[in-house]
Design a protein around this nucleic acid. Sequence first.
DNA 1: TCTGCCATGTAAGCCGTTACATGATTTT
DNA 2: AAAATCATGTAACGGCTTACATGGCAGA
Lengths: 194, 194
Amino acid sequence: MAKTDVLSLAILGMLAEQPLHGYQIRKRLGTELGPFRALSYGSLYPCLKRMVGAGLIAADESDAGRVSGSKRSRIAYGLTEDGERRLAEELANSGASAWDDDTFDVRFSLFTKTDSATRLRILEGRRSRLSERLEEVNEGLARVRERHDAYTTELHRHGLERVEREVEWLDKLIENERSATRGDNPSTASAGNN
Amino acid sequence: MAKTDVLSLAILGMLAEQPLHGYQIRKRLGTELGPFRALSYGSLYPCLKRMVGAGLIAADESDAGRVSGSKRSRIAYGLTEDGERRLAEELANSGASAWDDDTFDVRFSLFTKTDSATRLRILEGRRSRLSERLEEVNEGLARVRERHDAYTTELHRHGLERVEREVEWLDKLIENERSATRGDNPSTASAGNN
DNA sequence: TCTGCCATGTAAGCCGTTACATGATTTT
DNA sequence: AAAATCATGTAACGGCTTACATGGCAGA
């Protein structure tokens, strides 16, 4: 039942589609997986090493037809069967708070690989998490208003608005998810107009 | 010219209004200074100690008329003259990137203590920083669209929207700041309706 | 040729949290 | 009298970045 950290999960998910080098993984984390901050190699490579050690991924150094001479470069990583199993487990449980700021984006980006029930659980978990935050921010706003500092108040007001929008976004997604489950609309559960 | 980290700056700003205990400082960081995450004591107290060592703040253990007996508690921290000077310096220069995500909120929350020119510089710096991000996110969105993953695309679309809104917010603030400088409207440069 | 991107890795250090340790004050 | 909250601090540990070290390959 060993736990998988966010980074490992993201990597697992990315490698499920195709084998990649560390370098490519890093780039994709920066662009294609949400507006995920770019990760440094100092974090990435040790993580890959750990995952190889844990048997979740395998390193393929051959890299299809190259002169074998000197280079040590271009190691392609791919999922092992254990890795696939682990990914499946991890995708099935919305467990251990998939609604943290960090984790949510990663989990969401893996939604096409996630079953509908789990998707809904995650979205609702996230929603209720944000509701809590909404209250906190509201309290903060009230308290700060009393202090008559226009800028600080504005900062809070804006922060509140941001959270409210995020809740609205989630509500739409949840609604979409539900109606896709009820009626048997084609599997594309895209969230609206765009 | 010693540099002041974000946390120290926030504390400096908070103590400029009134002396506070560590405990109170922590609570206020969590509520009144932006939606700033609650800071742990393991970070706060060592920081206060460093600041005392640097002569920026002074610890007052007397705490007005108490039986002197046993307790070691309730240390009120207040700015020293050096601390006031440092705060003034720090508020005057928009230096060393006041537009990072972390730093910006803190700098903004100190805007009433900041002169109009510096406010404008910070807002514009932040704006241009977000413009860069906007391009990055846009590229990411384009790239991700090609991969036909509805959820990942939606994640990016939402991320983009969030940044766009932030830019709009800044534009309003900048406009406000400018018109307050041009016309001599009363000093309250509050940002709009509300 | 030289610049810039591809590609892999290690070591040191920063910044923060969690867990621990202690005790006073206020509220129920 | 117990429970909650106020209040201060230390030590261990975790995760991530920065700086370093190395080298291949492509195009201007």
